[in-house]
Each structure stands twice: as C-alpha cells, then as structure tokens.
Amino acid sequence: MLGAFQDEDGALTLGNLDALTSEAAVSALKGSLILSASTALLGAVLGAVLAYLVVSLPPRSLLRRGTLALSGVLAQFGGVVLAFAWIATIGQVGIVTQLVSDLFGADLYGSGWLFGLPGLVVVYCYFQIPLMVIVLAPAFEGLRPQWREAAVNLGASTWSYWRHVAIPLLTPAFLGALLLLFANAFAAYATAAVLVSQGQPIVPLLIRQAITSEVILGQANVGFALALEMIVVVTVVMVAYSLLLRRTSRWMR
C-alpha cells in the first residue's frame, strides 16, 4: 500500500491522493456509495421479508429448509455467471425482454440501463437478498412465540406487537446485516466487470482501468490510491459493525 504515496520513480509524494479528488474518481466513489447503499437497503428490506416468510413456515417443512440451503448457495453466487444470467433475462434479446415486448409492446431494454448503475442495482440484489436471509433468519428464529402470546394476552394488537416488541428486538441484527451487505456490495467486482464495458461508474472499475490501462501509462499508483480509498471505506464500515455488535451483545445475554 506504500505505492499510494509514491510516484513513478518511487519517490514519496502525495500527488496520487490528488487524483482521488479528480472528477472521475469522485463520481466513481459517489456511484459506488449509491450502489452499495441502495442495494444494501433494498436487499436488507426484501431479505428481511423473505426471511420472515421462511421462518413462519413450519420448522420441518421442505420448503423452509430448501430455501435456506438455496440462500446459502445464491449468496456465494456472484461473478461472471451472474452477469450472464441477467443478460440472458433482460438483455437485448433476453427472454423477459422479448416476453414483455410481445405481450405489452413495451421496450424493457430501453437504452441499455442493465449495463449502467440501475442495472447493477437489480443484479446485485440477486446475491444481497440471500445473504440477508442467512444472516437474519437466526434472529427471526430467536423471536419466541411466547413473547407474542404474552403481548397478545396483555391486549396488544398485531401492529403494537410488531411496533413495541419485535422491531426493537430485531433492529440491532438488522442494522448489523445492513452494514455487512454494504461492505459486500462495495467490494464486489466480477459481475460489474463483465456487465459494464463502457465508462467507470464505480470505484472497482476505475481501479481496473488504472491498473490495466494501456492508453495512459503511469496510472498504477493511482490504482493504489483508489485501493487505499476502498480500504478506508470498508474499515469505517467494519468498525461501525463491531461497535454495533458490542452494543448488541450487551443486551443479548
């Protein structure tokens, strides 16, 4: 990482950090943060819904165990294959694109939004939601039915049970998972590398350009600086995560 502070001849410099304030770097960082935050939020909310649905199934049901096992697989499922799958689905000749245009005459493909930031949001959710399910399902399982019965006995409606019992109990787990998802999306590279071939909307792709570019030489150290920037963001998230975990474990004895 020392490379972040060196120039071409190996002399120490802060010049590379200046590159971080260039327009491309700032917009890439903004894109990365927007992408990570939105997929973390979407994935967390939808994943929480799915986790609740799954946990509400009977404990021994095949559907429940199957969904949990499948989530374990899909959460690991990123990279090249995922990009292909989405190109085949809502790419220019994807089956859903063609179905929609046959049925409703609408053009789902549009001007290629799949290959930009909005497309990445849809695609990233594909591995964020399962990750949320495996992280949050144990928290839902920890909600004892007795608590609900006690609340109902005391005259609580379903809404007030959720408002005053379940949601406060789940909030720390939910926030922790949210941070985890954020870091996960921030670090993901392979899917974006295959999907996006023009422009550098997010930081990992900008790093790719910096260290593989054959047009502009001497960019490798800028790559180091960008990598340093990623480490800083991830460290902040991870420190927040461990602080949260410490706070939670105080209450979860």
Binding site: L50, S56, F84
Partner: peptide, 27 residues
C-alpha cells in the same frame, strides 16, 4: 389471508431467483 399473502410473496421471490437461471438455460 396471511397464508395466501405468504404463498404469493414466495412465488414472486422464486420468480426473481429462478427466471435468470431458466433464461440462461434457454439461451
């Protein structure tokens, strides 16, 4: 009503997760 809503939502999630795989197979 909760059961029906659950079945519908699970189907929606299943569609989101399986359609891309089927599309890939089709392709």
């Amino acid at each position: 009503s909760f059961r029906i809503a659950r079945a519908v939502l699970l189907l929606v999630f299943a569609a989101y997760f399986f359609v891309p795989l089927l599309a890939m197979f089709d392709f």
